[in-house]
Structure formats: structure tokens, C-alpha cells
Write a protein that binds this DNA or RNA. Structure first.
Lengths: 204, 204
DNA sequence: CCTACCGATCGGTAGG
DNA sequence: CCTACCGATCGGTAGG
């Protein structure tokens, strides 16, 4: 048998196991509803072991929240969106976006925990990272788009992002287990309303 | 001095004080982040006193969640919405809706707590109360509305409700303190996109 | 409605 | 990385 120069590659190291366990538990039970003992148990180590890797429970949450925020994939993916018309561009962007978001199911629940249990105190770190890129994104979108109705860029962006939040929150309220499959047709209808809403009627 | 046949009308009785204190604290810190001792303190009684009025902490949350759900005002208020054209009707409905929602600021945070910390287990009680009325509402809206594009009623409703959630969540993320004033202009632009999105272009 | 208490559990740490 | 522990706090209750 051949053996690697390193110890047999364990699927994950301890720190990753802790992060993964905590991530899932924070989504399921919130921050104060999740104990460090349960995180340790799910990660397969003793309570004290967590503190060899993370200084506190809040540090654990903060790292998970910041690392799994979808903007890491969403912004690059939107930058690569393509389309000859604004409509094609929006549809392509929406499709890429949905794909990126599905890689982080239930992230919105982490955002809820952040907003309620931390009053959004970790959000400031994100805004400086997100704002410039998204401003650039919108600018690029609008300069190619004479057929877009005169709507402020920030409103275009918020409405666009709102589509995903509305869709996801609607699904969550109809089936709180959160395990409902993605309904492409319903989501397409959300996009249709948005597209029809921002395009001038000329081309239709 | 005249004295009523009942004890001088205290502003609120004990049960109301407890509900009000718990309501505010659940919004601020979530469910597991709020202790019964703190609720008692804010309500001005001792811990044990709560249990003369409510059997458990969860019963407290459930009652607050169900009683302050905005559907109590939103459905009747939407039923009374008026307008000669679909556009006027939607604008009138949106305005009434916003007014009703502002009477329950931060209810969305209670919904987040419900979704995360209770996995939506109290939502089922609501759906049976909400669904028939809103179905009727949509039906009435659509039969008068030949100028509405062919969009399923459920999508019309979800998109409409999504406007408020998107607007509110956007404000919450830009200013997590949650005390930002209502920005009528921004919200009107959300409505404009929606309206333009659901109306056939004929009349514009 | 309060006082005093219950067992259980919390986040975190010392020491090895 | 575990064992054993810290003081603090939790939801809830008995008794008056």
C-alpha cells in the first residue's frame, strides 16, 4: 500500500469540523439556542478542545457569518454575467445568482440570527467589502442599458436582491422545514415581473 | 374626586405589562437570548409572578407572535382598498399596508425568531386563518383587472408582499438599529417597479 | 404576587 | 485535546 508523506488525509481537520458543526447548529437553533457543548459533541471532540481553535463562541459565529456570506461568490459571478440585451443580462445574472445562493442554503437564517441576536453588529465589516464592487457592477449595467427606465441604481440593486429574498422567504414560510426544492417556474415569474418593471415598454 | 366603580384604571394590567416587556425583549435579543427574569424585571414584578399569567416562556412567545402578526390589520385593510384602475388600487393598497405595518415595527424580527428558533412551528396556526381571506382578496383584485398581465394570483400576492419585506430588510441591513425613519420615496420606487411589472403596457 | 429554592445547563478555564 | 471544575444563570415551582 502506498502511504502519503502526510498523515492519511482526514476529510476535515478539527477546526473545520468545529466550524461545520457550529454552522449547522446556528442555522437550526440560533446563537443562544446553540451550546458550545453541543457544538463540541457534533464536532467529535470535548468542550475544552474548541478553545484550542477559537477564543469564544461569538468569534465562532462571526467567522462563520463572514466566511459563508454569499457575496464572496455573488459579486464575482454577477461580474461575469453576459447578455446582448438588458433582459438577457438580467436573466443571466439571476440564474448565476440563484446558483451561487443554492451553494449556501439557509444562509438567510444566519442573517436573521445576525440581525436579531447580534443587532447586525457584524454587518459593518461587510459593507465596505461589498459596496464598491456592487456600485461598479450597477454602473456597468446601466451604461449599456438605454432601454432601462429611469430608476436610481441603488433601487435597481435593492429590488433585484429583494427578488431572491422574497422568493426564499416565501418558500420558507410555506414550508418552514427549509428543505423544499427550488421551484424554477415560480422564481422565473418573480424575475419576469421585475424585468417588465424596469424595462421601458418599447421593445415589447 | 370621582372614583370609578372599579379600581383606578391602571394604564395596563399585569398580564399586559408582561406581554409588552416580553415582546420588546424578544425583538431585541431573540427567544433564547431573553430570560424570564429579565422579562419579569421589565414588567415590574418578580419572576414567579409571570407564572400566574402564563404557563411557560414558549406560551408567552406564541401568544405575542400570533397576536401581533400584522395579518390582523393587513387583511381587513386590504379589503377596503379602493381605486378606479388597478394601478390606483395597488397604490392605495400599498399605502394602507405600509400604514398597518408601521403599527408593528420590527414584527419581521419576531418572524425571524419564529423561523430560526422555533423552525416555524407556530406558523401553521396562521396559515388556515390567512389563506382563505387572501385568496378571496386576490380573486376580487383580478376580476376587475383586465389590464393585468397574465400572472398567477399567488405570484402576484407573493411579489406584492415581497416588496414590503425587501424594502424593510434592506433598510434593516443598511441601518441595523432598526430605527431608521420610513423613506417614502424609496418605497414608492419599489412600488413603481412592481406596478410597471404587472401591468400590460397598454395604458402608459 | 413574592421569596426562596430546585436541578440543569451555560460559557469558559486550569492543569495536565 | 481531555478531565474536571468555576461562578453564573437558566426555566420553573413550592409554599405562603
Amino acid at each position: 500500500m502506498d502511504h502519503s508523506p502526510q498523515p492519511l488525509p482526514k476529510a476535515k481537520d478539527t477546526a473545520s469540523s468545529i466550524l461545520e458543526a457550529a454552522h449547522q447548529l446556528f442555522i437550526e437553533h440560533g446563537y443562544h439556542g446553540t451550546s458550545m457543548r453541543l457544538i463540541a459533541q457534533e464536532a467529535g471532540i470535548a468542550l475544552g478542545g474548541i478553545y484550542n481553535h477559537f477564543p469564544s463562541k461569538e468569534a465562532l459565529f462571526e467567522q462563520i457569518f463572514l466566511e459563508t456570506h454569499p457575496y464572496h461568490e455573488v459579486l464575482p459571478t454577477l461580474s461575469e454575467a453576459q447578455g446582448d440585451t438588458p433582459e438577457a443580462l438580467v436573466r443571466n445574472a439571476a440564474q448565476r445568482m440563484m446558483k451561487a445562493l443554492q451553494a449556501r442554503p439557509n444562509f438567510l437564517k444566519l442573517m436573521f440570527v445576525e440581525l436579531v441576536e447580534f443587532k447586525g453588529s457584524h454587518l459593518l465589516d461587510l459593507q465596505s467589502a461589498i459596496f464598491p464592487q456592487s456600485a461598479e457592477l450597477i454602473e456597468r449595467f446601466m451604461e449599456n442599458s438605454s432601454s432601462i427606465r429611469p430608476i436610481p441604481a441603488i433601487i435597481l440593486l435593492r429590488s433585484f436582491l429583494g427578488l431572491f429574498i422574497s422568493y426564499y422567504l416565501g418558500e420558507l414560510m410555506l414550508d418552514p422545514s427549509g428543505e423544499s426544492k427550488f421551484d424554477q417556474q415560480t422564481f422565473d415569474q418573480f424575475i419576469d415581473i421585475y424585468l417588465h418593471g424596469i424595462l421601458s415598454g418599447a421593445q415589447e
